[in-house]
């Protein structure tokens, strides 16, 4: 089950949303649960996805750019870093939220990472490996439709009891037309915004079924509003990605 809006449609975003899940005993309303299911279903509108992305990390000492290629199929995801030189060739294979493999070309070996995925910014960005993993909102959160207008549904997600997503509360704004979340706020227990993700430049393919955002901006408010941009350079859906891509053998061959 995928949950992160970005992953499924727009690439990496997926994970972002996925992790937001938190579940306190909150009262959901049927409309909220219905909308969140629509959002999740929207991500299942394609069989696979291939995309090229570019991170732009805004640092005080200068910007940093990281490029990678993404392969999505079902619940599996493969990220291959292509730039800069010191990360080129590194790959991350996500089998599930709790299990991933990293390929380290410099060591000529694959390392399995199990358990809780690290929740710290990856390569200095505001996105963590956890952000890039696959999750499910409805698994971890109860959803309430707070309000709506002609363009948006406004959702409030609270973590379910017994679940332990990285963020106990989320606020999500969903585009009614395409069932995609274009703004997600990751919040603390008391409702303080910790990070804000904004997706812009939406475009759709295949009779408006498959939609993706061209740009994702993640702002980490805890790091003095530190910004990471994620740009989609290229994205294609239903390209027929082989299952072999998501194997250790593929990793060991260096992709």
């Amino acid at each position: 089950m995928r949950n992160s809006p970005f992953t499924i449609k727009a690439g990496l975003t997926v994970g972002l949303l996925a992790m937001l899940l938190a579940a306190a005993p909150a009262k959901a309303n049927p409309q909220g649960e219905k909308v969140i299911r629509l959002v999740e279903q929207a991500f299942l509108s394609y069989k696979d996805q291939f995309g090229k992305y570019k991170y732009l990390i805004k640092n005080r000492g200068g910007d940093k750019i990281i490029k990678f290629t993404l392969y999505n199929k079902g619940t599996k995801r493969l990220i291959k870093f292509t730039y800069p030189g010191d990360v080129r060739g590194q790959m991350v294979l996500m089998q599930s939220k709790d299990e991933m493999y990293i390929y380290l070309p410099a060591y000529r070996r694959v390392r399995r990472l199990a358990g809780h995925v690290r929740n710290q910014g990856f390569m200095g960005s505001d996105l963590s490996l956890d952000d890039m993993s696959i999750g499910s909102w409805s698994k971890d959160y109860t959803t309430t439709l707070v309000k709506q207008d002609a363009k948006y549904w406004y959702l409030s997600l609270k973590k379910k009891a017994g679940r332990n997503p990285p963020y106990p509360r989320l606020k999500m704004r969903v585009l009614k037309k395409i069932h995609e979340a274009d703004k997600i706020e990751y919040m603390s227990r008391s409702g303080r915004a910790l990070r804000t993700q904004t997706l812009t430049g939406w475009y759709c393919q295949g009779n408006s079924i498959m939609c993706a955002a061209k740009t994702i901006l993640m702002i980490d408010h805890r790091r003095g509003n530190h910004k990471t941009y994620l740009y989609e350079v290229e994205s294609r859906f239903n390209v027929g990605i082989s299952n072999r891509k998501f194997t250790i053998r593929y990793l060991m061959r260096g992709g």
Binding site: D86, R111, R118, F122, M123
Partner: peptide, 25 residues
Amino acid sequence: AMVELHRIPDQRKQVQTLASYVLSD
């Protein structure tokens, strides 16, 4: 964590590989 040896890696490329993980902390 990567190769089960608590030491500084031998090669530059290996150090660069680890840098991303070191700096993520």
